[in-house]
Amino acid sequence: MASSSHRRRPQPDRHFAWRPVRGPLLAVTAVAVVALVVTLAVAFRPGTAAGAAGPERAVAGSASRTAPGTPTPPASPEPSTAAPKPSASKRTTPSAPPSTTPSRRAESSTTHAASVATTTTPAAGRIRPGTTYQGVATSYDVGNGDGACSYGPTSDVMTAAMNTADYETAKACGAYVSVRAASGTAITVRITNECPAPCAVGQLDLSQQAFAKLAPLSAGRIQITWSLLSPAVSDTVSIRYKTGSTQYWCGIQAIGHRNPLARLEVRTGSGWLALPRTEYNYFLSDQGTGCGHDIRLTDIYGEQLTVPALPVRANATQQTTLQFTRH
């Protein structure tokens, strides 16, 4: 800035340079020259503003060298913070199978050998224990005993078809029901079929053999009351894989359960998976998830039975040692 001001000051001197030279003017000029020399000497002396610029640049340079290093400490924790995450997941992942595998073996062996079951929240549908329902009874020819529940042919003729509403997408399949006529006569039947419209809510379509124990077949239609039973049975639960089942797709069915079945689940790598139930009483795994793995059955009372893994044998009935508790 001193040199810049110095360049602007001589402009008036050049303006008066055309006048004749006089003594005083020479004196003034000599003084100006001396002042200029002194000014230049002071300006370039070490420690002045011009010389101070050097240290300032040096400090700035050192600051610029330090600046990249300054973010370095925060930057280093970021990798160090991220690093434990993979290591933590690696520690968790291997530890999961050991904790899962022993519990699976313990549960399977205990349940299979001693028929020990667990209990969860009751999951009754429309048909509830301890409730008496009113309706009418009709009759039909059961043929070989097969029906919508897909149990297959049977010699047991004490069966019935449940109206669609109470059938509830096969939830009524396998249920034992006590049916009482107005006369006081009572029989026990097992639900193996569905009675579509015009069957009304509360209506049971009995096998002809069962109906005949309550009234003559010629009666056609009689008033009844009925309620759910949990009877003594000699069979244990069996598992059947549907025709066409493989490890990539399967339908699973439970047969011979004392109480109505509320849920069927298969074991997967991430836990238990509940399979959707069809109207023909199979639980489907469209993607093959859990096919051939452990199976957990839950009845409407909330009792759970775990069936150890069974091979996927299509249309083969595989019996277990398990049965739900009588109520």
Rank of each mutant, 00 (worst) to 15 (best):
residue 200 A to G: 05
residue 221 R to L: 09
residue 268 T to N: 08
residue 66 T to H: 12
residue 186 A to E: 09
residue 50 A to Q: 15
residue 71 P to F: 12
residue 152 G to K: 04
residue 313 R to Q: 08
residue 47 G to W: 15
residue 49 A to N: 13
residue 308 P to N: 07
residue 136 V to T: 03
residue 36 L to Y: 03
residue 184 G to T: 10
residue 199 C to E: 03
residue 143 G to R: 00
residue 206 L to W: 12
residue 206 L to F: 14
residue 194 E to T: 07
residue 304 Q to K: 13
residue 250 C to R: 07
residue 25 L to I: 10
residue 282 Y to P: 12
residue 318 Q to Y: 11
residue 125 G to R: 03
residue 260 P to D: 03
residue 81 T to A: 06
residue 121 T to Y: 04
residue 72 T to A: 15
residue 64 S to M: 05
residue 185 T to Q: 13
residue 236 T to Y: 12
residue 81 T to V: 04
residue 141 D to Y: 08
residue 147 G to W: 14
residue 52 A to E: 05
residue 138 T to D: 00
residue 200 A to H: 00
residue 227 S to H: 11
residue 58 A to R: 02
residue 260 P to V: 07
residue 173 C to E: 13
residue 122 P to Q: 03
residue 66 T to V: 12
residue 295 I to P: 13
residue 18 W to E: 01
residue 5 S to C: 06
residue 184 G to H: 06
residue 280 Y to N: 14
residue 298 T to E: 11
residue 140 Y to R: 06
residue 116 V to Q: 10
residue 47 G to T: 14
residue 265 E to C: 07
residue 28 V to A: 12
residue 56 E to L: 10
residue 219 A to K: 14
residue 57 R to Q: 12
residue 18 W to L: 01
residue 201 V to K: 01
residue 153 P to D: 05
residue 78 E to K: 09
residue 102 P to I: 06
residue 321 T to V: 05
residue 324 F to R: 01
residue 55 P to R: 08
residue 28 V to C: 11
residue 199 C to L: 02
residue 38 V to W: 02
residue 304 Q to Y: 00
residue 211 F to Q: 07
residue 193 N to I: 05
residue 213 K to H: 06
residue 147 G to P: 13
residue 68 P to K: 10
residue 232 A to S: 15
residue 81 T to Y: 04
residue 311 P to K: 04
residue 92 T to W: 00
residue 215 A to L: 07
residue 180 R to D: 00
residue 236 T to W: 07
residue 92 T to H: 00
residue 88 A to W: 00
residue 19 R to C: 02
residue 79 P to E: 11
residue 240 R to K: 15
residue 285 S to V: 07
residue 254 A to S: 15
residue 85 K to N: 00
residue 318 Q to A: 02
residue 188 T to R: 08
residue 262 A to D: 02
residue 120 T to H: 10
residue 264 L to H: 03
residue 143 G to P: 01
residue 97 P to V: 05
residue 48 T to W: 15
residue 231 P to N: 05
residue 220 G to F: 11
residue 137 A to P: 02
residue 213 K to I: 04
residue 183 S to E: 15
residue 243 T to S: 10
residue 288 G to Y: 08
residue 229 L to Y: 10
residue 8 R to G: 03
residue 266 V to K: 10
residue 111 T to W: 05
residue 43 A to T: 07
residue 206 L to N: 08
residue 246 T to R: 01
residue 111 T to V: 04
residue 6 H to C: 01
residue 83 A to I: 00
residue 6 H to V: 04
residue 268 T to S: 13
residue 92 T to D: 00
residue 2 A to Q: 10
residue 17 A to H: 05
residue 16 F to K: 11
residue 107 E to Q: 13
